[in-house]
Amino acid sequence: MLNDIQIDAVTEILNIGLGSAAAALSEMVEEEVILSIPSVEVLDRTNAAKIVGSGGVDTVSAVHQAFSGPIWGNALLFFPEKQSMELVRAVMRNTLPLETLSEMEQEGMTEIGNVILNACLSSFADIFQNPIETNIPLFFQGNVNDLFRLQSDDGDTDETTLLLRMEFNLKHKEIKGFISFLMSISSINSFLDSITHYLDVDIA
């Protein structure tokens, strides 16, 4: 669906966008945070769920956020549950030694996800030269398949996902997670058109 040039372009755009998210997070946690996106794929959500679930990481902690504008859908940031706990407990003080994230930890996790997802969507908005409106972020904890199913309420069964692997580097920790943009076919087509257009303009 995406050719190499497009993928490179999207990756670059996202990495620029994440740069500002990283700066914001670094301020928040008073520690250097580096965010990077090593790969981008376009997949249907079933395959995406398989990829995400293949590491045996069926239970995930996620932040999801609906977006609308030139493209529309749901943005997800998720980590295997243990990784999310490590992330949250690395950036927050006074955390609880519990098996799952506490209420406050979920709240903190939501803000982190919010910053990252907003940054990614800002990058897309820059390409499209149109704002992409986002709704408030929500926290989710559970099976990865349920997470993907959760987003298909609009009846569009062919919903496609733009799946990004993301690395979240703290001083002594490297936490790996995923970002996924769940979009309908028309939304993804719009996304691809915009990328093509952007590259044309850019090359020109």
Binding site: M28, M92, E105, E107, T110, E111, N114, I132, E133, N135
Partner: peptide, 17 residues
């Protein structure tokens, strides 16, 4: 700023702020 300039919704958590 995000809300007014980029139409993005944000949360400001107690944990981090």
């Amino acid at each position: 700023n995000n809300a007014l300039e980029k139409k993005q919704a944000s949360v400001i958590s107690h944990s981090l702020n």
